[in-house]
Computed example of a mutant assay.
Amino acid sequence: MKKLFFLFAIVLSLGSCSLDDDSEPGYHMEIVPVENFIVPDTFNYLGFHQIKLFYKKPTICHELAGIYFEKHLNVRTVGLQCIVTNSPNCIPYEGELYEVNFNFQVISNETYLFKFYKGKDEDGNNIFEEVEIPVN
Rank of each mutant, 00 (worst) to 15 (best):
C90R: 03
G47K: 01
F69T: 12
H28W: 12
T42G: 00
P58I: 02
K52W: 03
I51F: 01
E35V: 13
P92Y: 05
N36D: 10
P33H: 05
G26M: 13
C61Q: 05
L80W: 00
K57S: 06
E99I: 13
Y55S: 02
T85K: 15
H49W: 00
V39K: 01
Y45A: 10
L97A: 10
Y55I: 04
G26Y: 11
F48E: 15
I38C: 03
P88Y: 12
T59Y: 05
Q50A: 04
M29P: 05
L53E: 00
Q81N: 12
I31D: 03
E94P: 03
N86T: 13
Y45R: 09
N44S: 14
F69M: 13
P88L: 12
N36Y: 07
I67D: 02
N86A: 12
E99T: 14
F43N: 00
K52A: 05
C82L: 07
Y98E: 12
V34R: 00
K56R: 15
Y98L: 15
R76G: 03
V100D: 04
P92L: 09
E94D: 09
L64V: 09
P58H: 03
P92N: 09
E63V: 13
P40I: 01
I83Q: 04
K52D: 02
L73M: 08
K52G: 05
E35I: 09
N44K: 14
L46E: 08
I67E: 01
P58Y: 03
F48V: 14
E30R: 04
Y93F: 15
P33Y: 02
C82I: 05
P88R: 12
K71F: 09
Y55E: 01
C90L: 13
F54V: 03
K71D: 13
F54I: 06
Y68W: 13
F37H: 01
G66I: 08
V32D: 02
Y68I: 06
I60Y: 04
I60R: 07
V75R: 09
R76H: 07
E30H: 07
G79M: 01
F48P: 05
C61G: 08
I31V: 10
L73R: 13
Y45T: 07
E30P: 01
F37D: 00
V78S: 00
K52E: 04
Y27P: 02
H72Y: 10
K57I: 04
L64F: 10
L46S: 10
H62D: 10
E35S: 08
V100W: 02
G26C: 15
Y27Q: 09
F48W: 15
E30G: 02
T59L: 04
G95F: 06
L97W: 07
V100F: 06
N74M: 08
E35W: 05
E99R: 11
I51A: 00
P40C: 05
N86D: 14
Y93G: 11
I31Q: 05
F69C: 11
K71T: 15
